[in-house]
């Protein structure tokens, strides 16, 4: 069961990376306009939010 000693931290680190990615999407306001984004994705010359 010693494998748990590094498997548990490993799983937590992976999950924290995913959480960090999600928090980044919230901070960069990617959930502010779900209505517009579903059309914007089809635009070729879409410019990202600054």
């Amino acid at each position: 069961m010693t494998s748990l000693l590094y498997l548990i931290p490993a799983s937590l680190i992976l999950a924290i990376i995913a959480l960090g990615a999600f928090i980044w999407t919230v901070r960069s306001r990617q959930y502010d306009d779900p209505e517009g984004d579903r059309y914007r994705i089809l635009e070729d010359d879409d410019r990202p939010l600054r």
Partner: peptide, 26 residues
Amino acid sequence: CGRCAITIESELNRLAGVASARVNAT
């Protein structure tokens, strides 16, 4: 709908002197 937002944005981006235009359709 969001389509309108895109139309307005691209129209405004064509104007000289417009640095950025963002329409929030929601």
